[in-house]
């Protein structure tokens, strides 16, 4: 059974159809990259999978681990093992970073009938993973993402992913706005988590990230549909030639 199975997915925002019949199958252990021009529906796909309610699914179905993902609330999807690393991580004043992650971990543990972690168990683990991501200790008690630099925010997403250990991690343009050092650190964090039980959906429109996170499959999303699929070599070809005649947004590729 595939970990994620998307069939004929149609989704709209404010009455505009963005996804127009998307099909994708992701097995555990695989890394899939979704590339495509701006406005092609990449972030919409990520939001639908994370169960954002502002996106209306009008047709199709999505099975996650054999369960109907489209029936799930965001928190249920998260508890089942879906994680979205946000393109624009949200600042939450007044809620401490570590407290937030521990609350999330405990919500997920509770869902699976496991005991809650207390601060003593949690903190060493949290700090160890922060070190891997080369994050400053002072971020432990700061409010979630508040006053973080762009790079710190993205690393904080990967840190949360590392703590929550999802089955499917969706990285929504995690590379955008990152300098090369930060990109390398983020990729290191992701690669450390690759394994036979976990799958990644890496959404990007730059080949650059894929130099560090080598995908098993690359898909080209144009106008709400996957128009091409291939191996890692496809990303290089796209870098070279663009998204082809289907992509009517030529400025989408970096100069």
């Amino acid at each position: 059974m595939a970990l994620l199975e998307i069939q004929d997915l149609h989704a709209s925002v404010d009455g505009h159809e963005i996804l127009k019949g998307l099909n994708l199958t992701v097995n555990a252990g695989e890394v899939h990259s979704i590339m495509g021009p701006n406005g092609s529906g990449k972030s919409t796909l990520a939001a639908v999978l994370a169960r954002r309610e502002t996106y209306e699914v009008t047709r199709g179905r999505v099975l996650f681990n054999g369960k109907d993902l489209l029936e799930m609330k965001p928190e249920d999807a998260a508890c089942e093992g879906v994680f979205l690393a946000f393109q624009y991580p949200v600042e939450i004043p007044g809620i401490g970073n570590a407290y937030f992650v521990r609350s999330a971990m405990n919500a997920i543990r509770k869902f699976h009938g496991q005991d809650e972690l207390d601060a003593m168990d949690f903190l060493p683990l949290y700090k160890e993973r922060m070190r891997i991501l080369e994050m400053d200790d002072k971020l432990v008690n700061r409010s979630v993402n508040e006053g973080f630099s762009g790079g710190e925010k993205k690393r904080n997403e990967i840190l949360q992913m590392a703590m929550l250990e999802p089955k499917l991690a969706i990285l929504d343009e995690t590379d955008s706005g990152l300098d090369i050092d930060a990109l390398r650190i983020v990729a290191k964090g992701v690669n450390a988590m690759r394994g036979p039980d976990r799958a990644f959906l890496v959404i990007t429109h730059y080949q650059r990230l894929l130099d560090y996170i080598t995908p098993d499959f690359v898909h080209v999303l144009v106008d709400g549909k996957i128009v091409r699929s291939g191996g890692p070599e496809l990303a290089l070809e796209l870098e070279d030639k663009g998204y082809g005649p289907e992509a009517d947004v030529p400025q989408a590729l970096p100069a």
């Binding site: 609330k73 937030f100 609350s103």
Partner: peptide, 12 residues
């Protein structure tokens, strides 16, 4: 903010 918290598993 609400969605961000929920997307991490914290119920509404």
């Amino acid at each position: 903010q609400l969605f961000y918290l929920r997307s991490r598993g914290i119920e509404e």
